[in-house]
């Protein structure tokens, strides 16, 4: 029963000639807060989509919540929540209609869904807006709604793909408070991708991906110690190639 929440072995994906993810070996423990960092195009979203069974691996495989992503897609999808990099809400529906739509897709009966929807809406500060169309919400509230929808079915593993991109500092902070509260109350495994490196400081462990390859893996404190630097951001800059420098990795 100590199965890892996520276990990838040799996982890779090509898009035509583009090797988006090379061969990823990775284990994320249950209830872990795991940060997945990397520059634009590193392969973070590709990894998340592979783990969420939206893409078929080109090589290797992975188990998520105990099930094989290639063979047991339905079982995996039943146990995960995914907040996509771009919002996937239906802008023409209201806040509560979006949540009800998700509840039906996840096969939650009304008597289970309605109290959960009420609770999430008040928890996420959306209570007064439930009958408004999503197009009328600010970016921060849309993101909050994306996350509320992602956890409506009480997943065991939650993937957050750059959840705070485009949010102002206040919206960002309240999102992090929500996520922390959620982790404390449910023991949820959180797999977070971001390129705001400082957001990954509170993670239990982080991986740094660069050009489809793992460049570093460990607890933030250990990575900083090894590199002899004071912030995760400096670790990030040291371990990843950057397009404005001469020859990639410093």
């Amino acid at each position: 029963m100590t199965a890892a929440a996520i276990a990838a072995s040799g996982l890779g994906k090509d898009f035509g000639a583009v090797r988006a993810l090379d061969r990823l070996d990775l284990e994320v423990r249950e209830a872990e807060f795991f940060g997945f960092l990397g520059p634009n195009g590193a392969g973070k979203t590709t990894t998340v989509h592979l783990l969420a069974t939206l893409l078929a691996p080109s090589r290797g495989g992975a188990r998520v919540a105990g099930y094989d992503v290639a063979r047991d897609g339905l079982a995996v999808r039943r146990r995960i929540g995914l907040v996509f990099q771009e919002t996937t809400l239906d802008r023409d529906l209201t806040v509560e209609e979006n949540l009800r739509f998700a509840a039906r897709l996840w096969d939650l009966p009304r008597r289970v869904a309605e109290p959960r929807i009420d609770r999430l809406l008040s928890q996420f500060g959306l209570d007064g807006r439930r009958r408004e169309p999503v197009r009328a919400l600010s970016g921060g509230l849309r993101r909050a709604l994306d996350i509320a929808r992602g956890i409506l079915h009480e997943p065991r593993v939650l993937f957050l793909d750059e959840p705070t991109a485009g949010l102002d500092p206040r919206a960002r902070r309240s999102l992090w408070q929500l996520i922390r509260a959620l982790r404390e109350s449910t023991g949820l495994t959180v797999f977070l991708t971001t390129h705001y490196v400082e957001e990954a400081e509170p993670c239990d462990r982080v991986a740094i991906l660069d050009g489809g390859r793992l460049a570093a893996l460990g607890a933030p404190a250990d990575l900083k110690g090894e590199a002899g630097v004071g912030s995760l951001e400096e670790v990030f800059l040291a371990r990843t190639g950057h397009p404005f420098a001469d020859g990639g990795a410093a």
């Binding site: 969420a52 039943r78 996509f84 996840w106």
Partner: peptide, 14 residues
Amino acid sequence: DAGVLRMVLVAPIR
């Protein structure tokens, strides 16, 4: 285009 299809694809349905 709007991304809604991806959200539907990640639901536990065939």
